[in-house]
Simulated scan of single mutants.
Amino acid sequence: MVCTEVVPDSIDIIITPTIALLVIGVFTIFLVMPIAGVISNSLVGAIQWILNVGGAVSGFVLGLFFLPMVMFGLHQILTPIHIEMINKLGMTPLLPILAMAGAGQVGAALALWIRCRNNKQLSNMIKGALPVGILGVGEPLIYGVTLPLGRPFITACIGGGIGGAVIGGLGNIGATAIGPSGVALIPLIANGHWLGYVIGLLAAYAGGFVATYFFGIPSSAKIAKDKEGHVIEA
């Protein structure tokens, strides 16, 4: 408003965006970026500490909390850790553990599909998102199925934690490159230890399924609905 009153109309289209860009740029560089850097460094340090502890407990914690990190986009800070591990170890043992989070989503979705068959709208969403979820693309299941329902998201995280605990407990399971998760990660598992990874996947599927089947089905999801989401009267 101030710019439009002070700056002539003939140059307003140049001056106003430039000033706005400078203000936002300074704010981002001197306030947002330092705060984001502190948060990122803290998260990286915490993850490295968890990895150093090792074992099933570390795997459970990482598998449990990875989906919330994905939800907020914080999983991108793990890329440098993956790269450094591959440089030093020839593989990243972190990726197979984190991949279990998506497997927990698959198990949760299967439980919802079975328990909520009368909800045609939900069933259709699950049928569309499940194949790509098995291949390691979890966003359709997160944002289309489990997260909107609430409890299934939590039980899916538990399934991911169980799978992560199995991978962490078995140990020495890593990926030779940063790639997809789920079934699609199997060819990238180092040193022929793909069977251990598959066991972890199955454990995450089972954990997410059982936790959701018995504890994660909200009553609203069981309401009979048609494909358009209209309630079907009994």
Rank of each mutant, 00 (worst) to 15 (best):
G37S: 07
A46V: 06
G37P: 01
N41K: 06
I29V: 14
F30V: 07
A36M: 15
I35M: 13
Q48R: 08
I29T: 14
W49N: 09
I19Y: 02
V23N: 00
A20Y: 12
G45R: 00
V44C: 01
F30D: 01
A20I: 13
L21Q: 11
I35L: 14
T28G: 07
S40I: 15
L22K: 03
F30A: 08
F27Y: 02
S42T: 13
A46M: 11
V23E: 00
G37K: 01
I19G: 02
I47F: 08
V44H: 00
V23H: 00
L21H: 09
V26F: 14
A46F: 06
G25A: 07
L21R: 09
G45C: 00
N41T: 03
G25W: 02
Q48P: 01
V23P: 00
V38R: 08
V32R: 09
G25R: 04
M33R: 15
T28P: 04
G45I: 00
I35H: 10
F30N: 05
I24L: 14
W49E: 08
I39R: 01
A20H: 12
I47R: 06
G37R: 04
W49C: 06
G25Y: 07
I47L: 09
A20N: 15
V32S: 08
I19S: 04
T28D: 10
I35C: 12
L22R: 04
S40M: 15
I19K: 05
I35Y: 12
L21N: 11
M33F: 14
V26T: 10
N41D: 10
L43N: 04
A36T: 15
G45V: 00
T28N: 12
W49Q: 09
G25D: 08
A46R: 01
I19R: 05
I47V: 15
S40F: 12
I39F: 03
F30K: 05
T28M: 12
I19E: 07
F27T: 08
L31G: 02
V26K: 09
A20P: 08
G37C: 06
I47Y: 05
F30M: 05
F27W: 05
A36Y: 15
L31N: 07
P34H: 03
V38S: 03
W49G: 07
A36E: 15
G25T: 07
A36H: 15
G37W: 02
L21W: 10
L22H: 02
L22E: 05
A20M: 14
A20E: 14
S40T: 15
F27A: 11
I29P: 05
